[in-house]
């Protein structure tokens, strides 16, 4: 039954990691612009063009 000690502490630690991830997200302003990110991901050719552009110059 003493396994319970380990399990409880591990579970709290895992939950704590999620809390840390949440705080990190907020700090990183990931929730500031939710609409923008969804649009940006549809502009697909971004990387390719950046490379070409710099190559020409």
């Amino acid at each position: 039954m003493s396994a319970l000690y380990v399990v409880v502490i591990v579970s709290i630690c895992v939950a704590g990691l999620f809390l840390a991830a949440f705080i990190w997200n907020v700090k990183d302003s990931q929730y500031e612009d939710q609409k923008g990110a969804s649009m940006r991901m549809l502009h697909d050719d971004e990387y390719q063009k950046t490379v070409n552009n710099q190559g020409q110059k």
């Binding site: 500031e32 612009d33 939710q34 609409k35 923008g36 940006r40 502009h43 063009k49 110059k57």
Partner: peptide, 22 residues
């Protein structure tokens, strides 16, 4: 958004532009 984030193509002294749409 697309255009404003590609300003570097019009003027290459602009290093990066990023729009917060909200």
């Amino acid at each position: 958004m697309w255009l404003l984030e590609h300003l570097y193509k019009v003027n290459n002294n602009i290093i990066e532009s990023r729009l917060n749409f909200t």
